[in-house]
Amino acid sequence: MSTEGSPIVREGPILRALQHIGATFLFALQLLAQCGPALARPGLIVRQIYNAGARSLIIIMLSGISTGAVLGLQGDNLLQRFGSENYLGIAAAFGLLKELGPVLTALLFAGRAGTALTSEIGMMRATDQLTAMEMMAVDPLRYVAAPRFLGGLIAMPLLTAVFNAVGLYGAQLIGVEEMGVDRGAFWSEMQSSIALADVRESIVKSLVFGFVASLIAVYEGYYSDGTAEGVGLATTRTVVASSVLTLLLDYVLSAVFL
């Protein structure tokens, strides 16, 4: 479309950021409208849950057990100062369920699954696959974007649950087996103090982070410049935007739940 004769608008960073946010919001609306029809093809969504979820399991489990082990080590060190090492189970569960589990899983998700989504869709754009679909009267939002978005959205809470479970095992491994915290106290204190609301907070946070990370990954890929450099830049933007938004939203959600 011609821009001749149109007033010259100097695009500053604020205007560009606002344009970006507006475009992402409109894209989200279009994407959500296509999620219903996309559910008619569960096979496509299951495949994306496998891609985003199952293929991230190793990295999630490794990170989970390391995080849990550090919690066990440092938690025991801190609680011993107050003679409260029996509360290590509560401390580890509290930290993992409410903060570390959802946040770290989201950050890892952005780095592993988010980048894969962006580069895959970006390459489809670069090789005219999305245009070919449009030419076959198939909406790529429904066939490509929506299943990947839904796959990421469903995979995130599952990955967070795995991260939490493995993290607790890691905390127990170090706290109980290595540092000598009483096994009964570790689990019974956790059982008596952690409420269903804490688990719910973990699930809600992971869903919100999953929504944001999947949306950004799909959006960046879908509108990436169809060049090698364009796809690379889009992938970088996915990690940066997802990570920053995850941390910002974590504070907001924590404040809401408190």
């Binding site: 390459m123 489809m124 696959q129 070919a132 030419m135 076959m136 198939v138």
Partner: peptide, 27 residues
Amino acid sequence: MRTRMGMLFQNGALLTDIDVFENVAFP
């Protein structure tokens, strides 16, 4: 209108995650 058209792209633009049969069966 596009269902009445076929278009051959410069690079083929085949869907890379499905095989030749499924590409042709796609429409």
